[in-house]
């Protein structure tokens, strides 16, 4: 059975009229890296909260269906047990700083102190996690003195250090530059290869296409489409439903209308775009073409 298993999950926040999640069925295997996309208000964050136990244990409201992770059912667990298996980092890094610690090192150790990890093990785990996300040089800084992108790395590290079996990330790179985003995606990919299951909400389609195993497209609380990144992210259904697409996809879609894109599939990444346009544009030379400038996200 799947490591993560959501069956007919419908959830409505208190005092709201429409459900934020409607009849969600989602299975994720252990070690799989699933990306979730969708327009604002689609229910992406709510889905993250549902996976991480905060729906329904923290946000009240009405829930039906079952949420299982690692063979345990959320409604039969308590939140403090649940978070040992499922780690959550979300978008706003400032609010994820515990506020109880004076240095980044202490901040990352906070979770381990809470769950009672012995001191020596704690130190080595914090060191390892900081090395993994490339923030060793921030160890003695105050978490409040960091830039947004650095704070996001600290927030991610603070969750990674707890070694959850399922890692849920809600737009964890929103304040990072392209280089930072690429590094973080690389780290997450590596964690997935080492067996951690990852569910990631992200807008940066090119990065999803390069790193994720599968994409789930959410709209109005329901799953609209699900499948391989290359297929989902280029589908017309998504374009018609107000999902953003990568600039390469948009360009190629326009080009296709004018007969300048001959391949069957639209590209998501720069490399795919270069490859496709090389077939139609006589003056392009895919090998010697200058690269790098267009590699940013969004």
């Amino acid at each position: 059975m799947a490591f993560v298993n959501l069956q007919n999950v419908t959830y409505q926040y208190p005092l709201t009229k429409t459900p934020a999640l409607q009849n969600i069925n989602l299975q994720v295997d252990e070690g799989e890296f699933v990306a979730v996309v969708g327009p604002n208000g689609a229910g992406k964050s709510t889905l993250c909260y549902a996976l991480a136990g905060f729906v329904p244990h923290f946000f009240k409201g009405e829930i039906s269906g079952t949420i299982e992770v690692a063979g345990k059912e959320s409604s039969k667990s308590t939140l403090d047990e649940w978070v040992l298996n499922v780690g959550l980092a979300f978008q706003n890094p400032f609010n994820q700083i515990s506020g109880a610690k004076y240095t980044v090192f202490e901040e990352i150790a906070f979770g381990l102190e809470n769950i009672g990890v012995p001191r020596e093990e704690m130190k080595s785990r914090v060191e390892d996690a900081m090395a993994l996300t490339g923030i060793r040089d921030l160890a003695d800084r105050s978490p409040y003195s960091l830039s947004g992108g650095q704070q996001q790395r600290v927030a991610l590290t603070s969750i990674l250090v707890m070694r959850p079996r399922l890692l849920v990330l809600d737009e964890p790179t929103s304040q990072m530059d392209p280089i930072g985003t690429r590094e973080v995606f690389g780290t997450i990919r590596k964690m997935a290869e080492d067996g951690m299951t990852v569910v990631l909400v992200e807008h940066k389609m090119e990065w999803i296409a390069q790193f994720a195993d599968r994409v789930v497209a959410l709209k109005d609380g329901s799953i609209l489409l699900e499948g391989k990144p290359g297929e989902v992210l280029t589908s017309d259904l998504l374009a018609e439903n107000g999902f953003g697409s990568s600039r390469y996809t948009s360009t190629a879609r326009e080009a296709k209308k004018r007969g300048l894109w001959r391949k069957e599939n639209l590209p998501v990444t720069l490399d795919e775009a270069v490859e496709g346009f090389a077939l139609t544009l006589p003056f392009s030379s895919p090998k010697g073409a200058p690269r790098g400038r267009g590699e940013s996200g969004k």
Binding site: F54, L88, F90, Q96, E106, G111, G116, P118, I159
Partner: peptide, 19 residues
Amino acid sequence: RAIAIEARGFTSKNVKTSL
């Protein structure tokens, strides 16, 4: 912030340790 510290085991019933 409550969610964030909860996600980091703040209400865990384990005996806490200190860095």
